[in-house]
Design a binder for these strands. Structure first.
Length: 344
DNA sequence: AAAGGGACCTGGCTGC
DNA sequence: TGCAGCCAGGTCCCTT
């Protein structure tokens, strides 16, 4: 699932390969992809065509390409989205693959992966070209040849051209941003854990003022952004915190440590190319190398906790799952005296 | 007002 | 073997 490290990997690829180029054509292949765009596909095309990309920026899981007219192409990858940059040759190759009368090319090309197709290295590389083109939702023709593809199997992701609005605090709007502005739909998204301008003491304070469970807080993009279900479970395990611990009963040091661990997990994923902790891979034996060594608890119900050997437990959480070690991450029945800050 | 829960979506997997 | 049903999850929106 695309979380912060995957989004940052994509942003870096866009910064290298798309900034400075002009959008020459726009083709929307699935209307749901532009469901947030007032006016739909025609409006998206009208606002985008002829615009030159000036920057690739990210906050949390949101990505955007700043344009030369104070607008931005905003993208969210949702559950399964990919942004691929194709060379002119790759576009021609795919066209040949799909053309009638050229079936001989199909078996070879169809078995190639997205990594063979894209100029950038996508976070997930096991999907074949035939699978990728089946889920192609929008394509942008770029100056100099080549295309930018938005591929999204489950269509939770979206694209939107919108105005950039000032943030008010004068600080950069996110990674890669040269301007203190954010797309409107991102205005309510908090700074993420890898943002140099993040105020950690203020974040700890705001977290402890919440009256909710710690995992819910960790996933609240208005509190701190970029953390999804997988990294949340891994960070809670490293911090030895049960996911349902009440935020207002955690000591400041424990909350600070949790955010430190969450940032560390995401930095580690980023260091290996933003490779996704995709749940699908967890169960795929052949692809288990990196994932099996990296995931302590997520998707590993019944397997031994790497720290103490106790079988990892799975619990229902917000219509999905939490994975944790019941021994390393105990849930206190009532708050211990040393869990309360003095004077409260 | 803050917090919680459901809807949205597709395809792989499970079980009958 | 075929097919119905379950499961995965990020964000928006509605209810409490």
């Amino acid at each position: 699932m695309p979380e912060l490290p995957e989004a940052e990997t994509v942003r870096a690829g866009l910064a290298t390969h798309v900034v400075g180029r002009t959008v020459e054509s726009v083709s929307v292949l699935h209307p749901r992809t532009v469901r947030r765009q007032p006016g739909g596909p025609p409006e998206l095309a009208a606002r985008l065509t002829g615009r030159t990309v000036t920057a690739a920026v990210r906050r949390g899981k949101y990505l955007w390409l700043s344009l030369d007219d104070d607008q931005a192409l905003l993208a969210h990858l949702g559950m399964s989205g990919q942004l691929l940059v194709l060379s002119g040759d790759a576009v021609a190759g795919v066209a040949a693959l799909r053309a009638p009368g050229r079936p001989a090319a199909a078996p070879f090309l169809a078995d190639r992966t997205v990594a063979d197709l894209s100029v950038t290295r996508p976070p997930s590389t096991v999907r074949t070209i035939s699978t990728t083109t089946a889920h192609l939702r929008a394509r942008l023709g770029l100056s100099g040849g080549g295309e930018l593809w938005f591929v999204d199997q489950r269509t939770f992701g979206h694209l939107l051209v919108t105005e950039l609005v000032p943030t008010g605090d004068g600080a950069p709007g996110g990674h890669g941003s040269p301007v203190p502005a954010l797309p409107g739909p991102v205005a309510h998204i908090a700074r993420d854990l890898l943002d140099p301008a993040l105020d950690v003491p203020a974040l700890v304070s705001r977290t402890r003022r919440r009256r909710t469970e710690i995992k819910r807080a960790l996933l609240d993009q208005a509190l701190v952004s970029g953390v999804g279900n997988i990294y949340a479970d891994e960070a809670l395990w490293r911090s030895r915190l049960h996911p349902t611990r009440p935020t207002d009963r955690l000591r400041p040091a424990a909350v600070r440590e949790l955010f430190t661990h969450a940032a560390a997990v995401m930095r580690e994923a980023l260091a290996v190319g933003g490779t996704s902790f995709d749940a699908l891979y967890v169960d795929v034996d052949g692809a288990a190398g990196y994932f099996a060594r990296s995931l302590a608890v997520y998707g590993r119900a019944g397997t031994p906790c790497p720290r103490c050997g106790t079988p990892v437990r799975r619990a229902a959480f917000m219509n999905r799952s939490s994975f944790f070690c019941a021994r390393c991450q105990p849930l206190p029945r009532r708050p211990a005296p040393d869990q309360r800050p003095a004077g409260r």
